[in-house]
Design a binder for these strands. Structure first.
Length: 492
RNA sequence: GGCGCAUUCGUCUAGUGGCCCAGGACACCGCCCUCUCAAGGCGGAGAUCGCGGGUUCGAAUCCCGCAUGCGCUACCA
């Protein structure tokens, strides 16, 4: 039998990482088994719809590389894939449940229910619907409904005994029926609740494995009873754990990005997020952590999922993002850098950027950035028409603090030597500056830092000689000269 | 309150009765490399396997209690 799994989000906003991780696992399992992964939109709560959500959901999946075989956009043999377009099925199921006395109409108003709960609270009784409308004779209920009275349909849970089901990860779980009340399956607006929609659709759409967040565990026995009352086989349940914030609480915007699309906007690589999410709660062998999509698919087994919550470790994600940046093909990464720089560089830098220049930069910075946005601060001096010399104190640094006169002198020597250079390339510049250091008695490192500050304006940069090559001879000498001026002016 | 699920280094995890006085990864610390910063290499520190009882020759691994955390207890999903 070929497996069929689904991702069934509500269109109430952007999918967050916890939610999408479940989707990723369902996808990986379906692909591993050569089965089907489909997308179904659960829009049965008309009051919570957020326009554009479906597109954002699809964009999130696509960005992560999770392709679906059936869905609202591509259709499929079990469509439609949007629950608001499947109302007939829920009506049909409700009719059958009503006819078999597995369900009944409830005419209680919200006020009635509130009063009931109030009384239960006062009497220290466990809250829950008391089943009063179950006593209404079917004919009377029918008549009241026909007369236009507003009602919901509730499932008639068995009052005694227990309900047992199997969660693939946790084994058998048993609930006492008397603790489960008669829950609503059809709302007064004619839409089903999640419970009914789940039982109807996951059967009609031939879902073999139901993966969902473990907040659904307590309602699983209701679903099992629903399936049975409908005469449908119960699917295999896989309840997945939540993702927590670094403080052990719920993951929220406070902890950084939360939705998948935010990570995309922040410049994370989709391969990195995919990899990171795949192993947050799953491990192929206890050692391997860097895995391609294909490797995840090959190694994945849904039975191997961990059952406890996991803290989202942003630092590890960043590390992994760096791993993927370094592993990327250079020309591809170069284009990524180019686009990021075009986004982040000051407005006066002309676009499009010189791709040859970015290509030359790429190997210099790829090992120095973990996150895309870090690239700009590292190389902006290569694009700025003017780089101001740092203030005197910074130029002197620790090395020249107590011998301030030596600094401008060293720069002068460097300028003279560089000016006389025939070829302007990194190797020649290095050779030249090392010679200057030797002649002047400066420590190479001290001289290089001085030049770095003068030419780039900062003390953390890509390698100096390559940087100077890219800055060019004229600009390099100019900046060196102005740094010397700063040192002399301040001194005088 | 009731019901349920969970509990291995700071974090993510490996581990399914002896190979574990617990392995890997991120983070952290040190050394090496080195023009800065990274990357890389090597090494270190870090977990009485939540606690208490049992079962067993032997338990992180099986059983029972307890504690803690989280979830559910809607005409939301």
């Amino acid at each position: 039998m070929t497996v069929r799994l689904r991702y069934a989000p509500s269109p109430t906003g952007d999918p967050h990482v916890g939610n999408i991780r479940s989707a990723l696992w369902a996808w990986a399992f379906a692909r591993h088994e050569g089965g089907v992964f489909y997308l179904r939109i659960e829009d049965t709560d008309q009051t919570r719809l957020v326009p554009g959500s479906i597109e954002r959901i699809e964009a999130s999946l696509r960005w992560l590389g999770l392709d679906w075989d059936e869905g609202p956009d591509v259709g499929g043999p079990y469509g439609p894939y949007v629950q608001s377009q499947r109302l007939d099925g829920y009506r049909e199921a409700t009719g059958r449940l009503l006819a078999s006395d597995n369900a009944y109409r409830c005419f209680c108003t919200p006020a009635d229910l509130e009063a009931m709960r109030e009384a239960q609270r006062a009497a220290k009784q466990p809250p829950g619907y008391d089943g009063r409308c179950r006593l209404i004779p079917a004919a009377e209920a029918e008549a009241r409904a026909a007369a236009g009275e507003s009602f919901v349909v509730r499932f008639a849970m068995p009052r005694e005994g227990t309900t047992t089901f199997t969660d693939l990860l946790r084994g058998e779980i048993t609930y006492e029926n008397r603790l489960l009340d008669d829950f609503v399956i059809l709302k007064s607006d004619g839409f089903p609740t999640y419970h009914l929609a789940h039982a109807v659709d996951d059967h009609l759409m031939a879902t073999t494995h139901v993966t969902r967040g473990d907040e659904w565990l307590p309602s699983a026995p209701r679903h099992v009873r629903l399936f049975e009352a409908l005469g449908h086989p119960v699917p295999i349940y896989v309840h997945t754990p939540v993702i927590l914030g670094p403080d052990g609480g719920k993951l929220s915007k406070r902890h950084g990005a939360k939705s998948v699309l935010e990570y995309a906007e922040d410049g994370y690589l989709p391969d990195a997020l995919f990899n990171f999410l795949s192993i947050l709660g799953w491990s192929p062998d206890g050692a391997t952590e860097i895995l391609s999509r294909q490797q995840v698919v090959d190694a994945f087994d849904i039975k191997d999922l961990v059952v406890h919550p996991a803290v989202f470790d942003t630092q590890k994600l960043e590390w992994m993002n760096g791993v993927y940046m370094r592993a990327m093909a250079e020309d591809e990464l170069s284009e990524v850098f180019a686009r990021e720089l075009e986004r982040a560089l000051p407005a006066d830098v002309v676009r499009p950027l010189d791709r040859a220049l970015v290509a030359a930069i790429t190997p210099l910075v790829r090992e120095r950035v973990k996150l895309l946005p870090e690239v700009t601060a590292l190389v902006d001096f290569l694009f700025a028409s003017d780089v101001a010399a740092p203030p005197r104190d910074q130029l002197l640094g620790k090395a020249y603090r107590n011998r301030a006169d030596a600094a401008p002198a060293a720069i002068d020597a460097a300028v003279a030597a560089l000016d006389a250079l025939e070829a302007w390339d990194a190797a020649a510049i290095e050779e030249c500056l090392r010679a200057v250091a030797a002649q002047t008695g400066e420590k190479p490192g001290d001289l290089f830092m001085l030049c770095r500050l003068a030419v780039t304006g900062k003390n953390v940069t890509p390698p100096l000689f390559e940087s100077m090559e890219l800055v060019g001879r004229d600009a390099s000498l100019d900046r060196l000269g102005r740094a010397a001026e700063v040192l002399r002016a301040a001194a005088g």
